[in-house]
Every structure is written in C-alpha cells, then in structure tokens.
Amino acid sequence: MNDTTPLAAIEQDIAATATRTGRSDDAVNLIAVSKTRAADEIRPLLEEGHRHFGENRVGEAADKWPALRADYPDVTLHMIGQLQSNKAEDAAGLFDVIHTVDRPSLIKALGKLVADGKAVPPCFLQVNIGEEEQKGGCAIADIGDLLERARSASLDILGLMCIPPQDVEPAPYFALLAKIAGEHGLKRLSMGMSADYETAVMLGATEVRVGTALFGPRD
C-alpha cells in the first residue's frame, strides 16, 4: 500500500525534476496555495512540516494566519493575489514575500513605507506574460521601467512572477519569463501551478504555487 502524502509526492517530483535540469534537489520552493482553505485544512500540512503558504487576499490571510502562526511561528507567508495600493501597509505587515508587484502606484505605496522606515518584504514583479486583458501583471514592454522604479524606491526585487494563459501549452510562456529575467539580471522565477509545476521547474522555476494538487478540489 502506498501511503505517500500529496505533499511528499509533489516534493519528490519537484526534487527529481530539478535534478534532471542540473540543479540541486532543493532548488525550488513549493508554496502551498491556501487561499479559501480553512485552518483545519491547512494544519495537516503544517504538521507534516511544510512552512511556505500563499494567500490571495490580505483580509482572509489576516483572519487565518495569526492563530496558525502562534503555533507555527516559522511559517513564510506569500502574497500571490493582486494587491491594492491601499492595502500595501497591511500586506507588508502580514506577508514575508509579495509576488504581485505590477504597477507604479503599488511601487509608490510600498516605497513610501520604506521611506518612512517601515519594513517591506522582498517582492517579485508580476508580468502579464500572455498579454491578457483580464489578468494582473505589467506589460512585457514595461518591465524595465517598473524594475527601475522599484529599485529607486529601495524595494528588494527577487525576480519575476507569471500566470500563463489557461488551456494552452505553458512552456513557451515559462521560457519567455526565464529569458526576460535573465536579461534583467533576476535569478528567481515564481511560475507553475498544480497542472504545470513540473514543466515550470524544467524551465527554471524557483518558486511554484500549488493548491489543488495539495489540498484537493475546492467545494
């Protein structure tokens, strides 16, 4: 009988794929996407030793995570949903990494916090890699300007993040994000979700954001 948990199986897949690409087996950070999941759904992963989680909304994270972190203070919490500029200060106080910096107004809001002497977590720039009107992320042509603005605001930019279009082969989009990151001297790539994380790892992902494959389908 195979009693491997979903978490262990995914970690094994990621490690094996990273190794095949010539990277170390711990080169990729698995972020468990816990948005809409109740605390009692999250605790089993915490008990299994997992410590990186992603949330989409500041308010939902603020409701759930203080109590969970009281028991597991070494959790790293990632903001992976679109962030409103007026929530920047709340997000900076709650999250350890922000993956969705995508416009000058948000950079300005985060930069003001830095200027005021407040801590701001490291960030990824989100790129609208498929040029989809309904999605967040900056235009590919705007990455250089946005990166310059972020650095001028003393933000710590780790790398680039994307969500490729649904129902098409994601590999070209992942490869494009990796190419753009390299052109700008950025080493980290937040890309890949439940359906395509192995492809993302093959193409250089350093962070993958997995929800359904870990927690099962949402109600």
Rank of each mutant, 00 (worst) to 15 (best):
G54N: 08
P104F: 02
H78A: 09
A91G: 00
R151M: 05
S152N: 15
I31Y: 01
R23W: 12
C162L: 04
I140K: 15
L7N: 12
P164A: 08
E48Q: 14
I163Y: 03
P6C: 02
G54K: 05
S152T: 15
A88N: 06
G136Y: 05
K179E: 15
G159H: 11
G49M: 11
A109S: 14
R218L: 13
I80K: 07
I80Q: 07
L160M: 09
P104M: 03
F124Q: 00
E41Q: 15
S24N: 06
P73M: 14
E55W: 09
D71L: 06
I14Q: 12
C162S: 10
T100G: 10
A109L: 10
F53Y: 14
R209K: 09
A18C: 12
L186S: 06
Q134T: 14
H99T: 00
G137E: 02
T212I: 11
E207F: 15
M79F: 01
V127I: 15
S154F: 11
G130K: 02
I98A: 08
I163C: 03
T206P: 09
N56E: 11
L158G: 11
V58I: 07
C123D: 04
E198S: 09
M1E: 02
G159V: 07
V75Y: 02
Q134H: 10
I163N: 04
R20D: 04
S24C: 00
Y197C: 09
L106G: 02
E148R: 13
A70F: 00
A181R: 00
Q134R: 08
A9R: 15
S34F: 10
A109V: 12
M202A: 14
D116F: 03
K187P: 01
A32K: 07
R103L: 13
G81Q: 09
I31H: 01
D167F: 05
Y72R: 13
A32C: 09
A8E: 15
A181Y: 01
G159K: 08
E183R: 01
V33W: 05
A119W: 03
G137K: 01
S34V: 05
A171P: 02
A171Q: 14
I180K: 08
A213P: 08
A195P: 01
C138L: 08
I31N: 03
P122Y: 10
R37V: 07
V120G: 04
E131W: 00
Y197A: 06
L177C: 01
G192V: 01
L94V: 10
L110S: 05
P44S: 11
G81Y: 01
A62N: 14
L77R: 05
A92L: 04
